[in-house]
Design a protein around this nucleic acid. Structure first.
Lengths: 226, 226
DNA sequence: GAGTGGTCTAGACCACGAG
DNA sequence: TCGTGGTCTAGACCACTCA
């Protein structure tokens, strides 16, 4: 029988993990410095850092350069469904930054408008408490906003979501305060009205440790023959 | 102005990256050994390995313990839509392993059957050529198979997909031959017939570097009022 | 300036693959 | 057995945070 010796970093990680999950180490609490931890576990600093990196990808700790490492406050698991996160969850609030720009390249194709068409970008950052939760970049043809001030009432008649999994970009990693090794759900959503006109295109970034996306199939009607 | 010096591992990674993407290094080709590469770039072996780790998460190289590192043959990007991958793509073939088991815990809840109900598990591994592409674990109540041999003709009337992003488990990593740091799309799909009976539950694992999932909303009919 | 995490070095030693 | 990648050491040096 082959008795595989677990790597030191794994045993250290699992030791800290149980201390966290059993509540022996509490959310928000500060970990000892990496030197002290390395001394305590009798390993070199790189191996201790490898152990911490594991915990970081599991979303258990947060690293702060120059300060220390902290036990992470677990965020509520929310569900993205039909374009919104767990129907307007009370603890959520959203900050929006509006930018004017012009359609170009892939964005113009998504929105089915010629390049150069004026657009408005809404950069939405969803917060839970003071912690960033997820983010969305929403693009809307500008004339649709000006002629129809309550453009959000344009209930989309059709649409699609294209979903993939990837690691965050460095920029997403810092604005969402997630490690570069935490997988995110990247969703591109396009909705159009009954005339086939595209109302909005959105790029969503939903960290995998705190979000599901739910899609339902209601095949009660016969299939379309378009 | 702050001129940030890029890390050595990043400059090495981007150098190798351009060699790969420009075709200077071809798919299937063997890389020089890590010692030689380290000597060539005048860095220590750990930093060179960090550079290679970056390329690995991007799906550009494949590491083989004891042999060498190889340029990866890029897999076709497929789309999961309505439960299947890019309607039966010609280059795909599927190996199936069947197992008999009993419903328990979360699985019983998903299938809406009492614990202990006999089930059949189909472990499907989708291959593109000789390379594993993605995998699915499909669970079906066994009586549904015996009474209705062509159970796959039971077109589901309703269903849902719950999608999230995560890193692969060590087991998934080895069977799919993907690095532990390549994000996967984890989909749980449950479909039921017109009587509300659950026909099947499936756990899908779709590596993010080669799969999208597409969900369409056809809201042409009025909303349901259950 | 003191304390901290981030990157890197120059090795050692083990595990794996193939002849 | 040889060449290879995987893990680990015991430091050095820099960058960041905060008093």
């Amino acid at each position: 029988m082959v008795t595989t010796v677990p790597f030191r970093r794994d045993t250290i990680a699992s030791d800290l993990r149980t201390q966290i999950t059993t509540g022996h180490l509490k959310p928000g609490e500060r970990l000892p410095s990496e030197l002290k931890l390395a001394a305590h576990y009798k390993v070199s600093t790189p191996t201790l850092r490898n152990a911490l990196a594991l915990l970081q990808t599991e979303g258990l700790i947060e690293k702060h350069h120059g300060k220390s490492n902290y036990i992470r406050r677990p965020l509520r698991r929310l569900t993205y469904t039909g374009g919104i996160l767990t129907p307007t969850h009370p603890a959520l609030h959203v900050t929006v930054r509006t930018t004017q720009l012009q359609a170009h390249g892939p964005l113009a194709i998504l929105l089915k408008v010629p390049p150069g068409t004026p657009l408005t970008e809404f950069l939405q950052i969803v917060h839970e408490g003071e912690f960033p939760h997820s983010l969305a970049r929403i693009y809307v043809p500008r004339d649709l906003i000006s002629t129809e001030p309550r453009w959000c009432d344009h209930r989309p008649a059709e649409g699609w979501d294209k979903v993939t999994a990837r690691l965050p970009t460095p920029e997403e990693s810092s604005t969402l305060r997630i490690p570069l090794t935490l997988a995110v759900l990247a969703i591109t959503r396009v909705s159009s009205d009954e005339t086939g006109r595209v109302i909005e295109a959105a790029h969503l970034v939903l960290p995998g440790d705190r979000t599901d996306a739910l899609f339902t199939i209601n095949d009660t009607t016969e299939e379309e023959s378009t």
